[in-house]
Simulated assay, not measured.
Amino acid sequence: MKMTGNTILITGGTSGIGLGLALRLHEAGNKVIVAGRRKDLLDEITGEHPGIDALVLDVADRDSIAQARESVAASHPGLNVLVNNAGIMALENLLDPAGLQVAEDHVTTNLLGTIRMTYAFLPLLVGKDDAAVLNVTSALAFVPFPVTPTYSATKAALHSFSESLRIQLAGGDAGVQVIEVVPPGVRTTLLGQQDSDQAMPLDDFLTEALDLLREKPDAKEIVVERARFIRDAVATGTYDDVLAMISSS
């Protein structure tokens, strides 16, 4: 992925990693469209950062995705990068019947949302110079956090989906790069980690991840060092130990 001169749509862009990427990529000389559900937050972002555009979008709503696609196709025909970042993370008790709704919400937002966004926007990217899809998954795609079982499962599914998407787009004339971004726990409001000593500071994560993108423009995965031991747990034979460590945290 080239780091400047793109037109980039970022879902889940009103806070956390999504907003951080939006600001960094805007500063690097890209046209950035921040997408999110809350218009008040979008207005605040565009007011504070002239040049960033906003799009009201709920990735859990197929009609909202269809409307967003038509809007972006008309307003930003040069779109060449899609960042699928929107997601939710909540505790889930598999022994509590109320947990089923939590699980279904995770699948709808994290998994179906990304899949639907990819189907909707991929036709706009195919054939564009330096086109790319970035899917933000999680280190928990590789070793689950048992108190968030469906969150972890959706991220594992998105890892698999990204692998298949990359292979399909490698053939023919699609010309779309697929990059999986694999964060560790990061200090954001996701699961209330903003003050967690066990989570990576957001600015540190953004700096390391974007440096890796600059150093390895053809990368398939962007894995910061803090996530590497989880990402590689199966290969290094430490899976059981890492799972036990995550389970006790």
Results as ranks from 00 to 15, higher is better:
Leu212Ala: 15
Val224Trp: 03
His26Ala: 15
Ser248Lys: 08
Ser248Thr: 06
Leu158Gln: 01
Arg166Pro: 05
Glu48Pro: 03
Ile17Gly: 00
Leu94Asn: 13
Glu27Phe: 12
Gly113Lys: 07
Asp197Tyr: 10
Ala141Arg: 04
Asn6His: 05
Leu112Arg: 08
Val32Arg: 10
Ala103Asp: 07
Glu208Ile: 08
Asp96His: 14
Val234Pro: 05
Leu82Asp: 00
Glu70Met: 15
Ile230Pro: 00
Val181Thr: 13
Gly175Met: 14
Ala244Cys: 06
Glu70Asn: 14
Asp173Cys: 02
Gln194Asp: 13
Gly78Lys: 07
Ser152Asn: 01
Val143Gly: 09
Val72Thr: 10
Glu27Met: 12
Arg116Gly: 04
Ala199Asn: 07
Tyr239Phe: 14
Ala227Gln: 04
Ala98Asp: 13
Leu57Trp: 07
Ala66Met: 12
Val181Glu: 01
Gly113Asn: 01
Leu122Pro: 04
Asp197Ile: 09
Arg187Lys: 14
Leu213His: 07
Val181Met: 14
Glu92Asp: 10
Arg226Gly: 01
Gly16Phe: 02
Tyr119Phe: 02
Val224Gln: 00
Asn30His: 15
Pro97Val: 11
Ala233Ser: 02
Leu82Asn: 01
Phe142Glu: 00
Asp129Met: 12
Ala28Ser: 12
His76Pro: 08
Gly185Pro: 14
Arg37Gln: 09
Asn6Glu: 03
Pro77Cys: 06
Glu44Ile: 14
Thr109Val: 13
Ala170Ile: 08
Glu208Ala: 10
Ala209Cys: 09
Gly172Leu: 11
Ile246Asp: 00
Asn80Cys: 15
Asp129Lys: 15
Val182Trp: 01
His106Pro: 06
Val102Phe: 11
Thr236His: 03
Pro149Ala: 09
Gly87Cys: 01
Val32Trp: 10
Asp53Val: 10
Leu125Tyr: 08
Ile8Arg: 03
Asp61Pro: 05
Ile45Lys: 01
Leu21Trp: 01
Ser138Lys: 00
Leu169Tyr: 02
Ile222Gly: 12
Asp61Met: 13
Gly36His: 05
Lys31Leu: 08
Leu100Thr: 10
Lys128Gln: 13
Leu19Val: 11
Leu191Gly: 00
Phe205Ser: 09
Thr137Phe: 06
Arg37Phe: 06
Pro77Thr: 04
Val242Phe: 00
